[in-house]
Design a protein around this nucleic acid. Structure first.
Lengths: 192, 192
DNA sequence: AAAATAACTTAACCTAAGTTAAAATAAGTT
DNA sequence: AACTTATTTTAACTTAGGTTAAGTTATTTT
């Protein structure tokens, strides 16, 4: 399990052995069952998770309806990042959508890394930059694309997402309702 | 001019004198006339700018139409940040909307800071985190709010924005067209 | 296999926002 | 002041997507 994250980290920075061990020693591996809630809204997100198996989702509850804002597949980080950073209660929930294995690091451990190893500061910066770029793309998708174009974009980026994530979860991620996604899919089938 | 950015930096980190000077020595102050283009699309964004006077906008050209994605007022950073980070051509343009004074730092200078001073690595991380949080809010505004609610939110956050930025620029920032913003404004006046 | 539940689609109607163009203001120029 | 030009509003019409509820399929559960 640790191997996955080690490979990932080493594609971004080249820590010394001391730096790597100072990090690896604090990692905690957890197994989750499909449906398990890892973070409920109102709680401060105290960990950043690295998914080594399964899929997780980050979602928001609005008027009794769940709106997904992020899916983390294998080798991706999952966190209610703004709560994690700001130490304020999360408006989001985190749930395992399949049986998952994750490797987690607490806020304190992350800060310890930042304060003691320059390599981790660099790593933290690059991860924050990547998170920014991801959000940037998402803003652009709402600003420049129609729902249909967002759907096609998602299909292109994650061709197999539809085998693992039910359509009604995808609809909310795209910012539309179920019937609307059905209409779009129908339109596209006809167009072919 | 440098004082503004110094105050800003010191609210985030406490650099040593050596660290501060290594940074300050590389800053370049520039004056811009209203309308000046600081970055055209297709160019790699090679600088990060700190606005000490005026307002600047970051915009995208789509089908001959300009869509604003960010306004930087006094004491805010301006950059085509994804181009700056990725070293790829920017899809965005940067323009001064009023006569502006800015303080700029090149990509090379920023990297020099990251590689030589831990405090700058921390600063870079925190700025990236702040950029992420800002984008996060913007994604949420598209996902959870109607155009009218986005308008009201903007009005609350920047009450004086409407005295400095024409409505048609604000419309595109909100993700709607001019006539639509007019309708919203009319609806709100009537509702009172 | 039958029943129950979950996931997806369809249909009818509604509403917000897009589109286009004209009209009304406002702001600058000469 | 008269003339431009830029900005904002209005109007008429179109379209994408929301809403609700009823149907279909799929999947589980028993």
């Amino acid at each position: 399990m640790i191997e996955h994250i080690k490979t990932f980290v080493y594609t971004i920075i080249k820590p010394t052995d001391e730096e790597w061990n100072g990090f690896a020693d604090r990692l905690k591996t957890k197994n989750l069952k499909a449906g398990d809630i890892l973070l409920s809204s109102g709680e401060v997100c105290n960990d950043i998770h690295f998914v080594t198996k399964g899929v997780m989702r980050l979602y928001y509850e609005k008027d009794g309806e769940e709106i997904n804002t992020y899916f983390a597949f294998q080798n991706k980080f999952m966190s209610s990042y703004q709560s994690f950073l700001s130490r304020e209660p999360s408006k989001y929930c985190i749930q395992a959508m399949e049986d998952c294995t994750i490797v987690s690091l607490s806020y304190e451990d992350v800060q310890h890394g930042f304060n003691n190893f320059n390599a981790w500061n660099t790593f933290g910066r690059i991860i924050a930059e990547q998170f920014f770029l991801k959000q940037q793309k998402r803003v652009e998708s709402f600003l420049f694309l129609s729902a249909e174009e967002r759907y096609l974009e998602l299909l292109k980026t994650y061709p197999d997402i539809f085998e693992r994530i039910p359509l009604y979860h995808i609809a909310s991620y795209l910012g539309i309702k179920g019937p609307s996604l059905s209409r779009i899919r129908k339109r596209l089938v006809k167009a072919k």
